[in-house]
Design a protein around this nucleic acid. Structure first.
Length: 518
RNA sequence: GGGUCGUUAGCUCAGCGGUAGAGCACUCGGCUUUUAACCGAUUGGUCCUGAGUUCGAAUCUCAGACGACCCA
């Protein structure tokens, strides 16, 4: 609908004729609105306070009644009411061309416009703290209507596609991203204070590694080189540990070419943390303390409610082996199975699915865990000691053959962190990655590949190291009580919006296609 | 990948085989204590797209697009 836009363009011209932009250069607010609300909470109804204030923000609502008008102006901190009366405004601007300053602000300023005002304070008879405006400046004319002031943006798709509108009208959305920023900065500060260095590693890689995932592919023109976007930061951070950095981390975006769901976005944020001379037990301690600290900073405590469920993140957290958890849930004792066939038969008898790709007792254990245990791990739980087959970068368990020193942290049924005593033996590492390559050749397109340079780094000698990865998006979902990962990513991936006329051009075959009878 | 639901005015929605509707927003008029302001008037449509059934389709059928949720 362009009529509204035309009207507002006309108002913009009228404003320009009055010397009001309509796009201002700068404005100096004296306060945020929330500061005024707090500082003048004691001002009584009907009273005025003759202090000069200046505030800037977006006009959210307008109520004009003859010679008096009320606007709501919102800045980042929240709203404040503007009290506009004809007598005051016209007296303050005697040189304004007819029909006068009050008429100008009430007829040329629309909901959605960004304006700055100067005035004094007054609490109205109804108890609303207001800026009694003496002068105003148009800072930016909005040519588009704001979403419905009562319903807000109910269309979920529009909320994601036009996040700016969502942010303007939904305080809850603003709060979510504010908390996300708080969580990330609290995490970095906590790590920095403990001597961890954040070092950036490449996003563009020749050999994607560090996780079981399919990468995005791209190309470097000048080198005529196929490249992939990183699926993890692990192998480069380990090279830094080899190089002598004993505590390193990187908090950043990684990319996995997978489906989209309420828990998956193709680009998401992780933090990977490596500590030399530590093992996975140390990383459990670190994980507890780090996440509990971030939770305190963001939520004010270590207890929270997620989608109606009480979650207590107060350390220490439960630690249980995968074998024990699967036994509790299914009665199956996986350490007693002598062959895959035996394990598969026992699983089938329990009504568990037995996928063909799970070609070993260890992989079936993980299947049983995913099918029967995972979703019920509501309170924070470290699941420890994974089968070696699924963990090609983790060190063999010091006392349990066939297992590795690995844990995953589950909260509200979701994998939230993953950590190992890192595998530092280059010979063992080569064998593990070669086994992965064999799987890849057999059709597992998420299997890892051999990274010769990484193996070379290990040959130089890597100290025993504990490594940890945390999914930031899922953690923020937990801290903000968000049901979907899209609610904590400002601009989640969506299919591009296609206009109907372009759609017709894109599918010319459709117009003449023969129709099969209905 | 499979299933369910949704898509109608700028926004929120109703209409479910017989002339396209409401509230809000916009525009105009009135109004000096409103806060979903109020009162009056006007304006606004590719009913997601394409095809089919029918005398007649927003409505029924098929295909497609996009989205949400659930499952894998």
């Amino acid at each position: 609908m362009s009529e509204l836009r035309e009207t507002r363009l006309e108002k913009g011209k009228a404003l320009a004729a009055l010397g009001q932009g309509p796009y201002g250069l700068r404005f100096e607010p004296s306060h945020r609105t929330a500061e005024l609300q707090e500082a003048h909470a004691d001002l009584a109804k009907g009273e005025e306070r003759n202090v000069a204030v200046a505030v800037a923000g977006r006009v959210m609502t307008r109520r004009v009644m003859g010679k008096l008008a009320f606007f709501t102006l919102a800045d980042e901190s929240g709203p404040i009411q503007l009290y506009l009366d004809k007598a005051t405004l016209d007296a303050a601007s005697p040189d304004a061309p007819p029909p006068g300053d009050f008429a100008h602000i009430t007829s040329l300023v629309d909901a959605g416009d960004l304006i700055g005002v100067q005035g004094t304070l007054r609490r109205t008879d109804r108890g609303e703290l207001s800026v009694k405006v003496t002068s105003w400046q148009m800072l930016s004319k909005s040519l588009q209507p704001l979403p419905d002031k009562w319903h807000g943006l109910a269309d979920v798709e529009k909320r994601y596609r036009q996040r700016y509108l969502d942010l303007i009208v939904s305080p809850h959305t603003r709060e979510t991203f504010r908390r996300r920023a708080l969580a990330v900065s609290a995490m970095r500060r906590w790590l920095d204070e403990r001597g961890f260095l954040e070092i950036e590693t490449p996003v563009l890689q020749s050999v994607p590694g560090g996780a079981d995932a399919r990468p995005f592919e791209t190309h470097h023109n000048a080198l005529d080189l196929p490249l992939t976007l990183r699926i993890a930061t692990e192998l480069h951070l380990k090279r830094l540990v080899v190089g002598g950095f004993e505590r390193v981390y990187e908090l950043g975006r990684i990319f996995r070419n997978e489906g989209i769901s309420t828990r998956h976005n193709p680009e998401f944020t992780s933090v990977e943390i490596y500590q030399a001379y530590a093992d996975y037990g140390d990383m459990m301690d670190l994980t507890e303390r780090l996440i509990a600290h971030v939770c305190e900073q963001v939520c004010g405590g270590t207890r929270l409610t997620y989608q109606g469920t009480e979650v207590d993140l107060t350390p220490p957290w439960r630690r249980a082996t995968m074998h024990d958890l699967v036994r509790e849930a299914t009665g199956l004792e996986f350490s007693a199975f002598g062959s895959r066939a035996e394990a598969a038969a026992a699983m089938a008898a329990q009504g568990l699915e037995v996928p063909a790709l799970a070609d070993s007792v260890g992989r079936l254990l993980v299947e049983a865990f995913e099918q029967r245990v995972e979703a019920d791990l509501i309170q924070p739980t470290f699941v420890i000691d994974y089968p070696v087959e699924n963990s090609p970068l983790a060190r063999a368990h010091r006392s349990k053959p066939g297992l590795v020193e690995r844990f995953e942290l589950f909260i509200v049924g979701r994998e939230t962190a993953n950590a190992f005593s890192e595998l530092i033996d280059p010979v063992d590492q080569r064998q593990r990655l070669e086994a992965q390559m064999a799987r890849k050749a057999a059709g597992d397109d998420e299997a890892q590949q051999v990274d010769e340079d990484f193996l070379q780094a290990l040959e130089v000698g890597m100290p025993p190291t504990g490594g940890l990865g945390i999914g930031i998006d899922r953690l923020v979902m937990l801290l903000t009580d968000s049901a979907s990962i899209r609610d904590v990513i400002a601009f989640p991936l969506l299919r591009p919006e296609v206009r109907s006329e372009l759609r017709a051009e894109a599918r010319p075959d459709q117009a003449n296609a023969p129709q099969s009878g209905a």
